[in-house]
């Protein structure tokens, strides 16, 4: 931090740095690192060291809980990859994130388009916008508690469905093995669409009106305008949001942990709850680390696509 407080060059940056002023150029070269030093320290402590640690744990045995850990080679990875619970978690995660992301996209786009309508006044739209953002303003713990109440066998969701004649008797959505994963996914859809919606709304507002006018002159109907103007214009936002959403949803832990704990019979077990249980319920930190590294690798694949997409833009 000392270099940041040191006197800096008095020369404007536009001026070429001349070699006859070595002291100023040196401070000028060092000062950005001074400003960055707290960040660099934090990234090393919070990211670089922990990742090295978790990778090294994953190749060892008896980590954290015992003093003398031994090298175990790929044993932890074999254990994890042959564990039927892990494979179930992998499959559940794939279903959970794909369905969530597709639904977020559809709902987010539908809501954003309604909120972007020219037919309603600004105040009406502003009020609706706040209402639509509501789910996103509650923390996951709160969302989990709300939906446990709503989805209770004698809760209001069952009451409504029974009254409408869609159900004969109350269903225990969160502990019926055939329904729990869908119930959890539904709650995640409810809680996650607003972020999509906000980004798509900004994207819609950025589409130049001339494009729609030109399409109208060409005699395009609303569906054609949607398919030929709106969607192509939103494509970059949609794709990058979808990849981001896949990454975020795959990291969802609190919602599932508080709704079902991964049960019943691991039908809602996802990679994060599986890893958490290995570490903090079973105290198998080595196998948990192997699972954590696999999760990291899967995320890196998604992140790689995200970066490629960003570069294309």
């Amino acid at each position: 931090m000392t270099s940041t407080t040191a006197p800096d060059t008095t020369a404007p940056t536009q001026e070429p740095v001349t070699p006859d002023r070595p002291r100023t150029t040196l401070t000028r070269r060092l000062s950005p690192f001074g400003y960055l030093s707290p960040t660099i320290v934090l990234i090393v402590v919070l990211m670089v060291i922990p990742i090295v640690m978790v990778i090294s744990y994953s190749f060892r045995d008896n980590v954290i809980v015992q003093e003398n850990s031994v090298f175990a080679g790929l044993a932890n990875y074999t254990t994890v990859l042959t564990d039927p619970n892990f494979l179930a978690a992998l499959k559940n995660t794939a279903i959970f994130i794909t369905v969530s992301t597709v639904a977020h996209l559809i709902l987010g786009l539908a809501f954003a388009m309604m909120l972007n309508t020219q037919l309603l006044g600004g105040v009406t739209k502003a009020i609706f916008r706040i209402v639509y953002i509501l789910p996103w303003l509650f923390t996951i713990a709160v969302i989990a508690v709300i939906w446990r109440l709503l989805l209770d066998p004698s809760g209001v969701v069952n009451y409504v469905l029974q009254t409408l004649g869609l159900l004969q008797e109350g269903v225990n959505w969160l502990s019926d093995p055939g329904k729990a994963l869908w119930a959890v996914t539904f709650v995640n859809i409810w809680s996650g669409y607003p972020f999509f919606m906000i980004s798509l709304l900004a994207g819609l507002q950025g589409i130049p009106n001339d494009l729609y006018e030109a399409a109208a002159v060409d005699g395009a109907n609303p569906v054609q305008r949607f398919l030929n103007v709106t969607l192509p214009q939103l494509r970059p936002v949609i794709i990058s949001m979808a990849v981001l959403d896949l990454i975020w949803t795959s990291q969802q832990f609190a919602l599932i942990w508080m709704l079902t704990g991964g049960g019943p019979l691991n039908v809602t077990e996802v990679l994060s709850t599986f890893t958490y249980k290995q570490a903090f319920s079973e105290y198998e930190f080595a196998t948990a680390s192997a699972a954590a590294v696999i999760v990291l690798l899967l995320t890196m694949v998604l992140a790689f696509f995200y970066v490629r997409l960003q570069k294309e833009r």
């Binding site: 990211m47 990742i51 744990y57 980590v63 994060s272 890893t275 958490y276 903090f280 954590a292 999760v295």
Partner: peptide, 26 residues
């Protein structure tokens, strides 16, 4: 500059569940 920036951006994608185990140890 570009490398440090790329690291900072990619930190956002690292799964918390991967970090929580070494964090616990640390």
């Amino acid at each position: 500059q570009k490398t440090i920036n790329a690291v900072i951006v990619s930190v956002q994608a690292v799964p918390p569940i991967t970090l929580v185990i070494p964090y616990f140890g640390l």
